[in-house]
């Protein structure tokens, strides 16, 4: 179990810091707060926001990473969302996509639904699970310095990479990106694949 007072990182600052280095990386977010975090950092046509499909964000990232092996694919999702798709850690590890980095914004809570405890509050170690599944890198980040050191891992290390970042439960204002699924999908495909795909 993580001691409450060790956790100091703010989710908005963490996500903004990571995305500042994004370059031409592609981003998938999980439902709820991580989608608002990405929107707060700035809407982008290389973002695919999963507004539902709880448990599916990392696997969507896998399919994308396999289809676009030359580009870095980031999945930024919540601990609750990750816990619903734990089998995905195994499925991803078996494919060993070198270009996929999964970032879990771990507030040890289901923030969206009233801040109930998730299993990570009770000591379930997501980074340990990633390592056991066979991720190339699987680490937990608690401090600013560790966050800085994780950036080259997120963007350059051979994947699959899992970075679990412990963040506070401080409320952050909801910032909404587009929510029409067909629009988000088509905008992303146009940006990544070009207009020809609509012909």
């Amino acid at each position: 179990m993580t001691d409450e007072k060790e956790i100091t990182l703010d989710r908005r600052r963490v996500v903004a810091r990571i995305l500042r280095e994004r370059g031409d990386a592609l981003l998938v977010t999980g439902l709820g707060s991580t989608t608002w975090d990405a929107a707060a950092a700035g809407d982008h046509d290389h973002n695919f926001y999963v507004w539902g499909a709880m448990g599916g964000a990392t696997l969507l990232g896998l399919g994308l990473a396999l289809a676009q092996p030359q580009r870095r694919v980031l999945v930024v999702t919540g601990d609750g969302e990750m816990l619903m798709g734990l089998g995905g850690l195994a499925t991803i590890a078996v494919q060993h996509p070198r270009n996929l980095s999964v970032i879990v914004i771990d507030n040890e809570s289901y923030a969206e639904t009233g801040m109930q405890a998730t299993h990570t509050r009770h000591g379930v170690d997501l980074a340990g699970m990633g390592a056991a599944a066979g991720f190339a890198q699987s680490i937990t980040v608690l401090k600013d310095g560790e966050l800085e050191r994780s950036l080259p891992i997120i963007y350059q290390s051979a994947g699959p990479v899992l970075v679990v970042i412990k963040v506070t439960t401080t409320a952050a204002p909801t910032v909404l990106p587009p929510r029409d699924g067909t629009y988000i999908k088509n905008r992303f495909r146009q940006a990544v694949l070009g207009s020809e795909v609509f012909k």
Binding site: G55, L60, A65, A67, G87, T91, Q95, K185, R189, V192
Partner: peptide, 24 residues
């Protein structure tokens, strides 16, 4: 063809959505 064994079928739906986003 890339073959992706899954732990549960729902994973596959998400994988294929990602594949389509990436042009596959």
């Amino acid at each position: 063809i890339k073959t992706v064994p899954l732990t549960t079928e729902e994973e596959g739906i998400a994988v294929l959505a990602g594949a389509w986003l990436g042009g596959e």
